[in-house]
Design a protein around this nucleic acid. Structure first.
Lengths: 330, 330
DNA sequence: AATAAGTATGAAACTGATTTCATGTTTATT
DNA sequence: AATAAACATGAAATCAGTTTCATACTTATT
């Protein structure tokens, strides 16, 4: 591989001038600029990223922390992020935290060693106090998950509204006994808390109360959904509708409910969250809350590059639209 | 951040000795080794990867080329690869080719600029002639997809056997009219060709012939499956069983077939490929060919690290077991 | 006891870029 | 016309490591 010295030699100029051309610095005459470009072309030269990094330059790599890539919500998000990044000449490092605090920190350490310019966190495991220290070493952007104050750039959805829309829809259909089954803890910060708030708001607007027996937390997978449904089937007093935190939980419930000969939505209405492909695969198709994953990915890269370009930029939060998609399960 | 000179100073030794300790070189006395380690600990020192890369060392990063991460087969594969890589202290760069030759080459170029030590290709778009030139710049390992000769390390499955098992199973259930619906082209190299061979072998063993009307190629998605099913429904003479190239195609077919009031498996038997989660979600659950994705991911990293450790190593191919999982769709 | 081989260590060169500093040349301003 | 500001260029320092080479000290071999 040719290096900068080869280009300098071939063009009869100094490394400095070549570097200036590469980085679009001013103060290079058009004539020499052309000479350099011709030499670069001829040698098939590409600047060595490691050398640039070493000198404190950009790595053109950004890390994306996800809990697990096999979760379709996150694989769609990573897909959108990777595509947007590719268009801008950036690489994407995939970081699976598996909800582990230490793994998350290990990935944040990539900033310290300048292996990535920035990190997009789609989930947060550690306290923000711990994470914020890493901003000294590179850009951190939250996408999907979020913290309470506007202290870091975030791409977020109005989760409160999302949950509210779902519950309201169930209430409008005449349901009075509504269960709530979500990932995360009921009263945690961020997403969980906001959805919870939307849930409570819709309920109290309708003058309804929460039945604690119908609250299920820390559920994520299809299997979790099936397991919860088994519990519900055993109950003396069953809910008539269930609001879930993901299409996967909802699908698991729906499948298990069918095994028990329950009619969806007549015996039991189920509402998902995310609008993943699975929502249209199960039978009946899921009513769900659509999260605009592709937009989130694109916006994340857009904002991340802005942050890298202008590290002192004002901290802004971006909210994307969330909507209810009515199908057959309600 | 502390650098190697700081460690050298604190331990009262030279950079050289510190470097020797980092890289586990022989010829360092135990006493000094301990001194260095203590100093590294005290300073919270981590070697700067960019500097190591610059000197032609490992990047501890490997790229994984997949067609698209949203395909569950590949997200599961990437998941397994990332986890295995993390355990060994390696990072994973996600590269989505979107079946585009140029994108694939752009990613292979990461080897040239030493941004990755090696690349695991889970799909091949360009001719092998083009790709093989990149081996000069780093390790290339094929996983899942493959070429015909043993000219590059490969992690593969016996696709011929996979298809054979599936078709044989259908024949054993008494089917005489079997359709074949797969991704890729019918006669291409690699996976497609081998599956095709298994298909033909099983058929000819049973003294059956191929009906060209029932061959569908270049199908991948759930939507493709639905679309093919619409074609089949229109046919005067319909097949009684369908062998597909993925659980997604199979699921799409199954869903569409149900819309047309076809009974699965009585009116039509459907068999998938991969054993993805969706196989157990659809109703009836899919009979399918299980590909051991986790094993493939682990083995890929194992072999990749071997290649990096010993670049001149003998080219070996590794074959993992493939099996039939009988559920309800056949 | 003399010599060879193995062990242990550090100074300096090197990797491939960017950045600082010095210097020369134009162009603009008074 | 004299001086300041803007433009153009390159030598050398720098980033943080690894590698080569030189050298000194042990231990093993004849």
């Amino acid at each position: 591989m040719a290096n900068i010295s080869d280009v300098a030699k071939l063009s009869g100029l100094s490394k400095t001038t070549v570097s200036r051309v590469i980085n679009n610095h001013p103060y290079v005459s058009d004539k020499k600029r052309e000479l350099v470009q011709k030499a670069m072309q001829e040698l098939g030269y590409t600047p060595n990223p490691s050398a640039r990094r070493l000198r404190g330059q950009l790595t053109t790599t950004i890390g994306v922390i996800v809990p697990r890539i096999i979760n379709p919500f996150f694989s769609y998000l990573v897909n959108a992020i990777e595509q947007a990044a590719y268009k801008k000449g950036y690489q994407v490092l995939i970081c699976q935290s598996y909800e582990d605090k230490e793994k998350e920190l290990a990935f944040l350490n990539l900033l310290k060693t300048k292996q990535v310019d920035g990190i997009i966190m789609t989930s947060i495991e550690n306290d923000w106090k711990v994470i914020k220290a890493y901003r000294d070493y590179g850009a951190i952007l939250l996408c999907n998950d979020y913290v309470d104050q506007e202290i870091v750039p975030m791409i977020r959805l109005d989760q409160t509204k999302g949950a509210y829309l779902g519950i309201k829809h169930l209430i409008d259909r005449g349901h009075k006994k509504i269960a709530y089954c979500t990932g995360g803890l009921f009263d945690e910060e961020g997403k969980g808390k906001d959805r919870n708030q939307g849930f409570q708001q819709a309920l109290s607007e309708a003058g309804m109360k929460i039945n604690p027996k119908w609250i299920f937390i820390n559920k994520h997978t299809i299997e979790d959904g099936k397991q919860v449904m088994r519990q519900i089937v055993e109950m003396k007093e069953r809910p008539t509708a269930i609001f879930t935190g993901s299409d996967e939980i909802a699908s698991g419930m729906l499948i298990e409910a069918k095994e028990h000969r329950l009619k969806i939505p007549d015996d039991l209405a189920i509402i998902g969250f995310d609008d993943q492909p699975i929502a249209e695969i199960v039978d009946p198709k899921l009513t769900t809350i659509r999260q605009p994953v592709d937009q989130m990915g694109e916006k994340s890269i857009e904002v991340m590059l802005e942050m890298l370009d202008n590290p002192g930029m004002e901290i802004k939060n971006y909210e994307l639209p969330i909507e209810l998609v009515v199908r057959q399960s309600t």
